[in-house]
C-alpha cells in the first residue's frame, strides 16, 4: 500500500531534491569497479560491430590478403558506394523509413487501445482475448505467407507498402498489447478514480491520465516496433516485388542470398542498413530520459 501511494502521488519533493545533486556522492571504489566491468562488457558486445565497420572500409584485395578480422589500411568507401548504387539505396531507404515509421506509430496506437480495454477495463474473458491477440505473434510467419498472398491479391493490395504496414501493425501490436495490459493491470486505481470524480470520460482518462504515466514504455515500444519491422525479411520479400517498393532488409537479404556480394560489400551493406535504426534508437534514447524527468516532476 505504501509503495502504491509513493508511486502514485510522489514522495515529498524535498526528498528527491536532496538526491539529485547528490550525484557522485559516495562513489566508493566498488562503484568504480562496477563501472569498469560494465564498460568492458559493453565493449565486448560491440566487437562484431567493429568487425563490420573494418570490412566495410576495406578493398576486396585487402580483405582477401588479410582476412576478415584485420583493421583496414585506410578509409575506403568504394564498397559503400557500390552497394548504394546497385540497389538504389535512396529509394529503398525511404521505403523502409516509411513502412517502419508507420508501423511504429500505428502499432503503438493499437496496443494502447487494446491494453486499455484489457488492463484498465478488465473486460470479461480478457485472458482469452489476450491469448487470441497474442496469436499474431505465435503463428509462425511462414504459415501466413500463402494465405496472406491470396487475400491481398483478392482485395487489390498486393505489392503495396500499405499491405505490409497493415500486416506488421497487427503482428507487432501483439507484444505492445501484452506488455501494456500487464503494466496497466497494476496501474494505481486511486489515480483513475480521482480523474473520474473530476468528470473525465474514459476517452479523456486514457489520454490525460494513463498515457502520460506509461510514456516511457510507449517510447520503448515505438523503438522496438521500428527496429523489428525494419529487419523483417520474409513477408516484405513476398509482398513487395517491385523494385520501387523494396525495403533495406529485402535488398540486403536478396543480394546476400544470391551470393552476389563479396564480404566487403556485404559489410558495407550492413553498415548502411544499420545506421538508420541506430540513429532512431539514439534519438528515442533521449526521449526516454526526458520522459523520466517529466514524470518525476508530475508524480
Amino acid at each position: 500500500m505504501t509503495a502504491t501511494l509513493a508511486k502514485g502521488t510522489g514522495a515529498p519533493p524535498r526528498a528527491r531534491r536532496s538526491g539529485a545533486p547528490g550525484r557522485g556522492r559516495r562513489r566508493g571504489p566498488s562503484a568504480y569497479a562496477v563501472l569498469v566491468a560494465l564498460t568492458a562488457f559493453a565493449g565486448v558486445m560491440l566487437i562484431p560491430f567493429v568487425v563490420v565497420l573494418f570490412n566495410a572500409l576495406k578493398t576486396p584485395q585487402e580483405y582477401s590478403a588479410k582476412g576478415p578480422l584485420a583493421p583496414p589500411d585506410g578509409f575506403n568507401l568504394d564498397a559503400v558506394r557500390a552497394f548504394w548504387e546497385r540497389v538504389e539505396f535512396g529509394q529503398v531507404l525511404l521505403n523502409s523509413v516509411f513502412i517502419s515509421g508507420s508501423v511504429a506509430v500505428l502499432a503503438v496506437l493499437l496496443s494502447v487501445l487494446n491494453a486499455y480495454a484489457l488492463g484498465i477495463g478488465r473486460i470479461k474473458g480478457r485472458m482469452w482475448v489476450l491469448v487470441l491477440l497474442l496469436m499474431a505473434n505465435t503463428v509462425p510467419q511462414e504459415a501466413l505467407v500463402y494465405p496472406l498472398y491470396h487475400l491481398s491479391k483478392q482485395v487489390g493490395l498486393y505489392d503495396t507498402r500499405i499491405s505490409v504496414i497493415i500486416v506488421f501493425t497487427v503482428i507487432q501490436s501483439a507484444f505492445g498489447t501484452y506488455l501494456l495490459a500487464s503494466v496497466l493491470s497494476a496501474f494505481p486505481r486511486p489515480l483513475l478514480e480521482a480523474a473520474r470524480i473530476d468528470g473525465a470520460g474514459r476517452w479523456q482518462v486514457l489520454w490525460r491520465v494513463v498515457v502520460p504515466v506509461v510514456r516511457p514504455t510507449l517510447s520503448v515500444l515505438m523503438v522496438f516496433f521500428f527496429v523489428w519491422t525494419w529487419n523483417e525479411f520474409l513477408i516484405p520479400m513476398v509482398f513487395l516485388i517491385s523494385n520501387e517498393n523494396q525495403t533495406v532488409s529485402v535488398a540486403l537479404g536478396v543480394l546476400q542470398g544470391q551470393r552476389l556480394m563479396d564480404a566487403t560489400m556485404s559489410s558495407a551493406a550492413s553498415l548502411l542498413g544499420l545506421l538508420p535504426t541506430v540513429l532512431f534508437f539514439l534519438i528515442f534514447q533521449r526521449t526516454l530520459s526526458r520522459g523520466l524527468t517529466a514524470g518525476a516532476i508530475k508524480y
Binding site: 560491430f49 529487419n231 537479404g253 556485404s266 550492413s270 535504426t277
Partner: peptide
C-alpha cells in the same frame, strides 16, 4: 545487437 539484422 538487437538492431543488427539477423542475416548480418
Amino acid at each position: 545487437p538487437q538492431v543488427l539484422p539477423i542475416v548480418i
